[in-house]
Nucleic acid binder design. Structure first.
Length: 577
RNA sequence: GCGCCCGUAGCUCAACCGGAUAGAGCAUCGGAUUUCUAAUCCGAAGGUUCCAGGUUCGAGUCCUGGCGGGCGUACCA
């Protein structure tokens, strides 16, 4: 749409002999389609000319607008409204999209700029739970958006694979063989190794209550791990591997992929180095037996080492940030982590700045609202005490099962394999979309009933709309109808749809800039809604072959836009359902 | 106490970096299917955009001060 807006803005400035920067950005839709197809607010022009906006609009309306696709201009108070010459606009709009249909929506504004995006970052030896979905899907979608805008992106998974937890697991591996021997059957051969690790971990913690000396044993095991003891190391690696394998099953279903998977375990040396740097630069000080870095007055100091000398996640994050910059010389680095950690990141960024890393200014905490679970009737943050987490896999399975029932009912003739594929896409799509629909800062209440309702503004609605496009195109192909150039597209609803399609690239840019996938979600909902309204009123394929061809071209660009949009959101576009 | 985020229809959310009459979905009620899939569409009803000031041609949007909610606030991550 940009090209059209720019033409109007350029002409207006030429006619009035003034310059207003970014005038084209202010062009908008009139509140109602019968006022016109585009509107130029004249406030800025009027200000530059020191006259009343209504006068400016009047004067501009008096000019002869030699833009081929503009049929007429009319002033409405301080606005100047443009009515399109439908055939010319439609043809030009369609040509613009079809010209670049392979890359429609993408751009090169990010050319030569590197972005690192950290997201997901679960703890190993545990299941992915529903609350992991937020970071995981937002992060993946932001990665997709940035790539689409031409940035070079490294996606980064910062695994929680280090700490006293693993001392406990290793201790339990050795001491709890009678309860469950992780070597027989071997961890790798179990159907649900993660759950087995979990119950062992819970059992160990229980036992600690009666035998506090177990804590010491666990600490010793962790020490062995840190010191590189072969047995400890080997077992830890096995735990890590089975965890990753399990994560990857879910990541695959969700369309999630990482360029780097690097756990906290990787920063042993880095932490030593960064503590040394802090000491040398005189930033580290002793306070209440712990080592801290004092920051500006309005935020509390950052804790670097505990009283017992152990490091904290802040230390690991410092080391990790430095390592990241060494590995990927980024111009922007996003941490897709929940808003509850805001203070931690402010501290982290400030300490890095104090260490003299000027790239610390390029770090961003891409915060998102917390997910609340319904615990005994109240919405609470998903800190489940009794180990009662809602597993992400189970939610996905439930959604897929429900989708399968509906697909079977609506489309009984589908072969089994296709039915499975479609149900998977629809069920997972519903879950993913429910997480990506609202602005990321909003807190979300995890409401399974809502996620599993496939009516209204949902993932399945978008997929259903995509299916409609595909059905029409399939039928047209069977009948051998050729797509036209669009000159017969003159219905107001057709102009509205074309304008919507042309805005797609701008939506992507905005979404990438703001790290806000919901802008794409909202855009696709509007696209779908406008199309479904149109679809209810107009036939695409009719006896009028020329008109059919032109409408088919419209369907083709709609389909292509919807497909790309769904891809960006990690929702699979399907052709039947 | 202090810091960050949020406050729009009964509920969940939009509103294109300040623009014309604040829009959707869900829920409620009423309608539409011999047609390219009704997971859809159309209509009705639903609002003091938390309150009070300020900035200006113009504020849901920006500023100040309140009120309400969430999260965080030194050895968890």
């Amino acid at each position: 749409m940009r090209q059209f807006n720019v033409q109007i803005a350029d002409h207006a400035q030429k006619y009035l002999d003034v310059e207003v920067p970014d005038l084209a950005d202010h062009i908008c839709d009139p509140p109602s389609a019968d006022l016109g197809d585009l509107s130029l607010p004249c406030f800025l022009l009027a200000k530059a000319l020191a006259e009343a906006p209504t006068a400016t609009a009047e004067r501009l309306a008096g000019k002869t607008w030699d833009i081929p696709w503009v049929e007429s201009v009319s002033p409405a108070g301080p606005y100047l409204n443009f009515k399109f010459q439908a055939d010319k606009f439609s043809r030009q709009a369609l040509a613009q999209v079809l010209d670049q249909t392979e890359v429609w929506g993408s751009s090169e504004v990010g050319q030569g700029i590197t972005v690192l995006v950290e997201y997901s970052s679960p703890n190993i030896a545990k299941h992915l739970a529903v609350h992991h979905m937020r970071s995981t899907m937002l992060g993946q979608s932001i990665t997709n958006l940035l790539r689409c805008a031409g940035f070079s992106v490294t996606s980064w998974n910062h695994l929680g694979d280090w700490g006293t937890t693993f001392g406990k697991l290793l201790a339990a591996w050795e001491l709890f063989k009678e309860r469950d021997d992780l070597d027989s059957p071997a961890l790798e051969e179990r159907t649900d190794a993660i759950s087995d690790l979990n119950s062992l971990y819970v059992a160990f913690n229980e036992a600690t209550k009666e035998n506090p000396e177990l804590e010491d044993i666990a600490r010793k095991w962790f020490k062995k791990l840190e010191d590189g003891d072969p047995q400890a190391r080997a077992r830890w690696e096995r735990i890590r591997n089975v965890s990753l394998a399990r994560f990857n099953l879910v990541y695959d279903r969700l369309g999630v992929h990482f360029d780097r998977v690097i756990g906290e375990s990787h920063y042993q040396q880095g932490m030593v180095d960064v503590v040394e740097q802090l000491t040398e630069s005189g930033l580290l000080e002793l306070s209440e037996g712990a080592e801290i870095v004092r920051l500006s007055d309005d935020i509390p100091p950052m804790l670097i080492r505990k009283q017992d000398g152990a490091t904290l996640y802040s230390t690991r994050d410092l080391a990790s940030a430095i390592e990241r910059y060494h590995q990927v010389a980024f111009q922007r680095c996003l941490y897709v982590v929940d808003a509850g950690q805001g203070l931690h990141f402010r501290q982290l960024f400030e300490v890095l700045k104090m260490l003299g890393y000027d790239w610390a200014d390029d770090l961003e905490h891409t915060e998102f609202g917390i997910m609340r679970l319904n615990i005994e009737g109240n919405w609470k943050k998903g800190k489940t005490r009794g180990g009662q987490v809602v597993l992400l896999e189970e939610v996905l399975d439930q959604a897929v099962e429900l989708a399968a029932n509906i697909v079977k009912e609506k489309n009984p003739d589908l072969p089994d394999q296709e039915l499975d594929e479609i149900s998977e896409a629809v069920g997972v799509g519903a879950v993913v979309f429910s997480d990506m629909k609202a602005a990321r800062r909003k807190d979300v209440n995890f409401d399974l009933d809502k996620i599993l309702s496939f009516d209204g503004e949902t993932g399945p609605y978008l997929q259903y709309t995509h299916v409609r496009f595909c059905s029409i195109l399939r039928k047209a192909q069977e009948q051998g109808i050729e797509t036209g150039d669009g000159s017969r597209l003159d219905q107001p609803s057709e102009i509205i749809l074309l304008k919507r399609v042309l805005r797609f690239p701008d939506v992507i840019l905005r979404a990438a800039r703001d790290a806000e996938p919901s802008q794409v979600s909202q855009y696709l909902l509007e696209l779908a809604s406008e199309f479904n309204t149109y679809y209810a009123k107009h036939r695409i394929i009719s006896e009028d072959l020329q008109l059919s061809g032109d409408r088919l071209a419209l369907i083709e660009v709609l389909r292509s836009t919807m497909k790309s949009g769904l891809d960006l959101l990690c929702i699979r576009p399907i052709e039947r359902m």
